[in-house]
Amino acid sequence: MSKIEFTLNGKNVVYDGDPLRRLVDVLREGFQLTGTKEGCGEGECGACSVLKNGKLVTSCIIPVGSVGGDEIVTIEGLRETEQGKCIIDSFAEGGAVQCGFCIPGMVMASQALLLTNPHPTEDDIRVAISGNLCRCTGYDLIVESILLASRKGEGLW
């Protein structure tokens, strides 16, 4: 067993266990942060997306041993920020949510995009969410909602 220290949603935490355990399992079962969903379990669907040092990664294929000293942000951390609230409100206002399973990952992907590109084009958005699969919406309302967030949140990013 090994102790791995990292920052989780702004707080210093210590994980004591198998370093090859998947980050998604540590978040959901170890820290009860169940907003991060598991879809494919192979790093392809994006439902488990979190931010690692500001970059979007799939937590189902990241061993917790590789996040020592890193800053991890999950949907629970993001929703407490003005930026997160703006994206989530825009998703609700834009009708972006149907079953909702992919939405935490979509919100994290939106945040990763807006952090580096506060005024994205539709093409920028489609590239940014290209690793996030949604089986309900057909993506158009999600793309429009991210455009809405970038307009409503002017100055937040």
Binding site: G43, E44, G46, S49, K52, K55, L56, V57, T58, I61, I62, A109, V127, A128, S130, G131, N132
Partner: peptide, 9 residues
């Protein structure tokens, strides 16, 4: 490596 998220790691 088709996933943007995976390519980031």
């Amino acid at each position: 490596c088709s996933s943007f998220e995976k390519r980031n790691a």
